[in-house]
């Protein structure tokens, strides 16, 4: 941290959010509860996320952060409470996309076909062109005819990102998508993610256990503990952000402190 931190071209900045912007879904969670057998995974979560915000959710394993994401995605049904998308309860539509810790590519489909999985029915006629275009954006145009098995872990996750972005989603849910990648691949994925977010303006919710990553990417970091949101930290640093800048470091430390005190 002593040496001059390399400038990280995180994003093109808010100013560049112009053409092609589809905007983001505004989310509103009220009294969300979920129980798995004996464990109460969500204990009444209230949360408002404005359109286009990048939210990071941190917390220890089993704190309920993934459960919250899966409830928003509709992969789990809440025991109590409501989720509204742009003010409408429970209507997810086709504007939601999700990335997982594993790429979850279809092994029997080539890269291009895997990206086409993300295309909406309305765009089926232009599927090939759209998929090719978004593959170019993630730098994998030359791999479009490969099988997923022939790609590296980082490349597979980039294909998964392309698949998520090809439909120009308004809400992107990220369930530790960078968790299994090596440090360098992780950094370049962070750049890709921020660029896409800046350009398309979707709402992003990133679940992660890497506080540095959360602070570097998000407008707002939520700390979840024992099924509740215990802290809501705003990150007001402008983009592009400099890795290890004093402001970010201060926020990161306070979050880490909070997480560590909970452990005791």
């Amino acid at each position: 941290m002593q040496e001059a931190p390399p400038v990280h071209p995180m994003a093109d900045g808010i100013a560049n959010r112009t053409s092609g912007t589809v905007g983001g879904t505004a989310l509103s969670l009220r009294g969300l509860q979920k129980r798995f057998g004996e464990t109460q995974a969500m204990r009444g979560v209230d949360l408002d996320i404005p359109s286009g915000q990048f939210v990071a959710v941190v917390g220890r394993s089993g704190s309920g952060k993934s459960t919250m994401l899966r409830l928003i995605a509709g992969l789990e049904v809440p025991d109590a409470g409501t989720i509204a998308f742009d003010g409408v309860r429970g209507e997810r539509g086709g504007d939601l996309r999700m990335m997982f810790q594993e790429p979850r590519l279809l092994p029997w489909a080539r890269v291009l076909a895997n990206v086409e999985v993300g295309i909406r029915d309305a765009d089926k006629l232009r599927a090939g062109a759209l998929a090719g275009e978004v593959l170019r954006e993630v730098g994998l145009e030359s791999k479009q005819n490969e099988w997923p098995a022939a790609l590296s872990g980082g490349q597979r996750q980039r294909v998964a990102l392309a698949r998520a972005l090809v439909s120009r989603p308004r809400l992107l849910l990220l369930d530790e998508p960078l968790g299994a990648l090596d440090a360098l691949t992780r950094l370049s994925m962070q750049v890709l993610l921020t660029q896409a977010w800046s350009r398309l303006g979707f709402t992003a919710i990133l679940v992660t256990h890497d506080v540095t990553e959360a602070v570097a990417l998000a407008d707002r970091v939520l700390i979840i503990e024992d099924g509740r949101i215990v802290q809501d930290v705003a990150v007001r640093e402008a983009r592009p952000r400099t890795r290890g800048s004093p402001t970010l470091a201060t926020i990161e430390n306070s979050i880490l402190e909070e997480l560590l005190t909970e452990e005791i």
């Binding site: 995605a73 509709g74 992969l75 086709g94 939601l96 996309r97 999700m98 997982f100 594993e102 979850r104 279809l106 999985v117 993300g118 909406r120 029915d121 698949r163």
Partner: peptide, 12 residues
């Protein structure tokens, strides 16, 4: 099952 879940969430 992870692939099936992916398919569902991608609107298949």
């Amino acid at each position: 099952p992870q692939l099936v879940e992916m398919g569902r969430i991608y609107g298949m």
